[in-house]
Design a binder for these strands. Structure first.
Lengths: 249, 249
DNA sequence: ATTTCAATTTTTGGATGCAATTTCTTAATT
DNA sequence: AATTAAGAAATTGCATCCAAAAATTGAAAT
């Protein structure tokens, strides 16, 4: 025995989903995966269950596992969760951050500013794009670390994982997503994100908890709105679940 | 094959944890459980993993599973999560509730009022105690249903599950929990809970989203404070994790 | 030609066996 | 007597095997 085999299976599948090699709706057959990875079906099964609790995979009993796919309504629910948690984390961070934690947040913010400027000058700068994304993550992670609530932190990290998958690198065989907006729109969006981050940082720095929460919530709401635009124009009236309908009689 | 055996195992173990038959820290050995339940080790393993993601069980690789135990610090983190989510749900409910959903919430509130009065008159009324707990749950569930975000709802329900376990029926072999306060204190607490609920309801009814959130957050904060008292007097300074310490260099 | 029903194949969920690792026990040494 | 080391027992994690359920294919009847 080498090491935790189920971990290998988990990482293997997760990576494929994230890169888009296994697109949303893709059927994940244990037998195929196990022979592909070179382990038996047991650890694959376990990995799929873990991915299901992460929200990356959907398992219907006796029907197998598929890569999760979300419609806009589900995405909005998802972002609502993120909004609630990250807003709370920002609030906590404003209250309990240490000077060092504040500096860590500021470092990420400053780096983002630099990279954003660079991208606005040269749209094709791949390195700057990569760096910007990395610093964006660092900014958010720094805030939830400063909040000092590990449960909240791990929940948010789990959500980020899903977000990356559904709106990540590519969606080669998925439904036709609306073509990217033009550069001017993109630049405007980047500036808005940066402005949002600055607001959040300032509120945390002056220990203004309500303002920090509001700023973070506005930021995430902006993300939702932006995604709604690129996703497709439909206002997407929410479907009511049977469970919800039960409340009406 | 009869039915989903892993479901049987899951319910079996969950119930035992909730009733306190398996107290916090209790060692959950797959072999023992499988022979006790009458299924093989595979579904037991799966059930334990599910319980771990629910937060009821702790699994350390190669060391087995134990019933999760929380200290006060962890409980506060846990309640923080609940506060963030239920506060958000109350806000949403204020914004998007239908008249029927509002009435459902009011029904639970009215029932709670009745049962609380009854308990204050007769402390020993077991039926009223049961009913009060049930209506308390109904009140909270009605609100998250009215919020119409299934993800948030299922997350909160998961949290409620854990809450029930750690502060549920009994903890026979656990550390000596401070003896229950006297009746006057209890009655005061019950009245405060009811007043909280009324505030929450009123805010939702008049579609005042910020007030609904604030009232809910105050309510949960009260619960935390109350638990801190009955748990033990220690202020419980949070331990820093190695991960957090990394941020300091 | 299309639809329906049955048989075959595929695939999941569960049981069992096996190897590796951890823990418990016991004995020996300081 | 206490502490450590070695071996024995127990327990986890993975692989394989088996049975039940679902999907698919093919044939027959309308």
């Amino acid at each position: 025995m080498k090491r935790v085999t189920s971990e290998v299976a988990y990482e293997y599948i997760r990576k494929r989903i994230q890169t888009g090699e296994y697109p949303p709706g893709f059927s994940l057959v244990t037998e195929v995966l196990s022979s592909e990875i070179g382990v038996s079906r047991t650890p694959v099964r376990e990995a799929l269950h873990r991915l299901a609790t992460d929200g990356l995979v959907e398992i219907r009993p006796r029907h197998g596992a598929t890569v999760k796919q979300m419609d806009l309504a589900q995405y909005r629910d998802f972002c609502g969760l993120r909004l609630a948690l990250e807003g709370y984390a920002a609030m906590l961070a404003a209250l309990v951050h240490t000077p060092l934690e504040l500096r860590t947040i500021k470092l990420a913010l400053d780096a983002m500013r630099t990279h954003t400027e660079r991208i606005i000058v040269d749209d094709q700068d791949k390195v700057a794009h990569e760096a910007l994304m990395a610093e964006d993550v660092r900014f958010h992670v720094s805030i939830m670390s400063a909040a000092k609530n590990n449960l909240v932190k791990s929940e948010i990290l789990r959500l980020h994982l899903v977000n990356r998958i559904l709106f990540g690198p590519a969606d080669p065989s998925g439904p036709p997503i609306k073509e990217f907006a033009n550069k001017a729109e993109h630049d405007e969006n980047r500036r808005r994100v940066l402005a949002n981050h600055e607001e959040i940082y300032d509120a945390i720095a002056r220990r203004d908890a309500p303002a920090a929460r509001e700023a973070m919530e506005r930021h995430i709401q902006d993300i939702i709105d932006h995604a709604a635009l690129t996703f497709g124009g439909t206002p997407a009236v929410r479907e009511l679940t049977p469970e919800e309908l039960a409340y009406r009689g």
